[in-house]
Simulated scan of single mutants.
Amino acid sequence: MATVRLDQLRKVYPNGHVGVAGASFDIADGELLVLVGPSGCGKTTLLRMIAGLETISDGTLAIDGRVVNDVAPKDRDIAMVFQNYALYPHMTVAENLGFGLKLRGHGQADIDGRVAAAAKTLELEDRLASRPGALSGGQRQRVALGRALVRDPKVFLLDEPLSNLDAKLRLSMRVEIARLHRQLKATMVYVTHDQIEAMTLGQRIVVLDGGVIQQIDTPMNLYDKPANLFVAGFVGSPAMNLLHGTLQRQDGWKLVTAQGDIALGEPPQASAWEPWRDRAVVLGVRPEDLQPQPSGAAAPALTAQLEVLEPVGNEVFLNLRHGSQPLVSRVAPQALPEPGNAVPLGLARERLHLFDAASGQRVVP
Score class of each variant (00 low, 15 high):
Phe82Leu: 07
Ala129Asp: 11
Val115Lys: 05
Thr55Arg: 14
Met49Glu: 06
Ala94Ile: 12
Ala129Thr: 11
Gly42Thr: 14
Phe99Pro: 02
Gly100Cys: 08
Lys74Tyr: 10
Lys102Ile: 08
Gly137Ile: 04
Glu123Ile: 10
Asp112Cys: 10
Ala116Arg: 10
Arg76Tyr: 07
Leu135Cys: 05
Leu122Met: 08
Gly40Trp: 06
Leu128Gly: 01
Pro89Val: 08
Thr44Leu: 01
Pro73Tyr: 11
Ser130His: 15
Lys43Met: 03
Glu95Met: 03
Val67Cys: 00
Phe99Cys: 04
Ile56Asn: 00
Asp112Thr: 14
Met49Gly: 06
Gly59Asp: 04
Ala62Glu: 15
Gly107Met: 04
Ile111Gln: 08
Glu123Gly: 03
Leu87Asp: 09
Ala62Leu: 03
Leu87Arg: 07
Gly107Tyr: 05
Asp110Ala: 15
Pro89Asn: 11
Ala134Thr: 14
His90Met: 03
Gly100His: 11
Gly100Tyr: 12
Arg131Asp: 10
Gly100Val: 12
Val81Thr: 11
Thr60Tyr: 00
Thr60Asn: 10
Gly100Trp: 12
Lys74Gly: 12
Leu87Asn: 06
Gln83His: 01
Ala116Thr: 11
His106Thr: 13
Ala119Leu: 13
Thr121Pro: 02
Ser130Tyr: 13
Pro38Gln: 08
Asp77Asn: 13
Val36Gly: 00
Leu47Arg: 12
Gly105Leu: 14
Thr121Trp: 10
Ala62Cys: 04
Gly105Met: 14
Pro73Gln: 12
Asn69Pro: 06
Gly133Asn: 09
Gly42Gln: 13
Cys41Pro: 03
Glu54Phe: 05
Leu103Arg: 13
Val36Asn: 00
Gly59Val: 05
Arg131Gly: 12
Ala116Asn: 01
Thr92Arg: 10
Ala86Thr: 07
Cys41Tyr: 02
Asp58Leu: 09
Val71Ser: 04
Leu122Arg: 04
Leu135Ser: 01
Ala86Ile: 08
His106Glu: 15
Thr60Lys: 09
Lys43Ser: 03
Gly37Met: 03
Ala117Trp: 14
Thr92Gly: 05
Gly133Glu: 12
Gly52Trp: 03
Val68Tyr: 03
Leu124Val: 12
Phe82Tyr: 14
Gln83Lys: 03
Asn96Arg: 00
Cys41Asn: 00
Ala118Phe: 05
Leu103Ala: 13
Gln83Asn: 04
Gly42Val: 13
Ile111Arg: 08
Val115Ile: 10
Leu47Pro: 07
Lys120Thr: 15
Arg76Trp: 08
Asp77Ser: 07
Thr45Pro: 01
Arg104Glu: 14
Leu61Gly: 01
Met49Lys: 05
Ala72Arg: 11
